[in-house]
């Protein structure tokens, strides 16, 4: 177990180097000069050159990459924004809870809807509910998330006025200038983003859970449970679901990891200052340190959640040994 963890962490380190290196390479392949942007519109060539020197952009990219790594390892700092010199750590620290609110809230909604619907569909394949679920799945998968977000925002937020159209409220550490704050305001503002992300994601989960449950229902040990005289409810809970949930745990973990890197479209439409929005702004302004920060956060989220999934999996399924 300990050796397994050590090996996983070493791999995480390798992955981390690879991801950040690739981000650097791609960034320097883009023919644009961040110094020109940072220096302002009417900057002289000399001024731009001095900004380049100040930001370290005059050095070869591998030197820059080395400096970046050194600072990260020694100071634990992701550097400062090219544009406003604010620490990247702070930007990420502010944006990550917004994205996390979106992702965890939506996943909770997804699971509470798709598990019962998936089970009912599996129990009654080709029934009205199953067909309706299938149609919903197709719609959810086919429609782009920004379209769903805009439609919900327009009808529910604007026409009906039931929810805010956009914006985010802090739960804790509410800024003084802010007009809203606290749990209720936070949840109220998150309703539409949650709904949108759930609609996009839940379809796949319904289909997946349905398929897993149907597959598990035909297993011999389920027949054994019935032969013992177990009531259907118990057969489903103790014998079918426990086994059917194994692969589902995997995709939940991976999806959370991926989404934590930023749900760009949904954050944009609802004006959420999350990691997706941060990344978009950073790309638009060639702000490499900030972009790098978001990429690293996303990579770490995926690494952490894959590890959680593996540990959880070994805990649920006794056949798996972590060695």
């Amino acid at each position: 177990m300990f050796r397994y963890l050590v090996r996983r962490l070493l791999w995480a380190g390798v992955l981390f180097i690879a991801v950040t290196f690739v981000t650097y390479v791609i960034f320097f392949l883009v023919p644009a000069n961040p110094a020109r942007l940072a220096a302002g519109q009417n900057a002289t060539p000399e001024h731009i050159a001095s900004v380049e020197e100040f930001l370290g952009l005059d050095r070869p990219f591998y030197v820059q990459y080395y400096r970046f790594l050194k600072r990260l390892v020694i100071e634990g700092s992701l550097g400062e924004s090219f544009l406003n010199r604010r620490p990247v750590n702070e930007e990420i620290y502010n944006a990550a809870p917004v994205t996390a609110s979106l992702v965890f809230g939506a996943m909770l909604l997804v699971l509470s809807v798709s598990i019962p619907i998936g089970i009912l569909s599996a129990l009654r394949p080709r029934s009205l509910l199953d067909r309706a679920a299938m149609v919903y799945v197709l719609v959810g998968i086919s429609l782009p998330s920004f379209w769903i977000a805009l439609v919900l925002s327009y009808f529910i937020g604007y026409r009906l006025g039931w929810t805010p159209i956009a914006g985010y409220c802090e739960v804790v550490s509410v800024p003084e200038a802010s007009t809203c704050g606290g749990f209720v305001d936070w949840a109220y503002h998150m309703i539409l983003p949650w709904l949108t992300l759930s609609i996009v994601v839940a379809g796949t989960y319904v289909r997946f859970i349905r398929a897993e449950v149907m597959e598990t229902m035909t297993q011999d040990y389920v027949r054994t449970a019935r032969a013992k005289g177990a009531p259907e409810r118990r057969v489903m809970r103790a014998h079918i679901l426990r086994n059917a949930m194994l692969p589902i745990v995997t995709i939940i973990g991976l999806d959370i990891g991926i989404l934590l890197g930023g749900a760009i479209f949904i954050e944009q439409v609802f004006g959420l200052p999350g990691l997706g929005t941060t990344a978009i702004n950073a790309i638009g302004q060639f702000d490499l340190p900030v972009l790098q920060g978001v990429v690293i956060f996303g990579a770490v989220a995926i690494i952490v959640f894959t590890l959680i999934v593996d540990l959880l999996y070994a805990w649920i399924d006794p056949r798996i040994r972590l060695t």
Partner: peptide, 30 residues
């Protein structure tokens, strides 16, 4: 009646026991 007055032994013992439950708890369940 099932499992109490009439019990069944199946063909394939490799697949007839639930892989995620302990032997003891599967026996005790019966």
């Amino acid at each position: 009646i099932r499992g109490n007055e009439i019990a069944m032994i199946f063909q394939d013992p490799m697949t007839s026991l639930n892989p995620v439950h302990k032997i003891g708890s599967q026996l005790e369940e019966a």
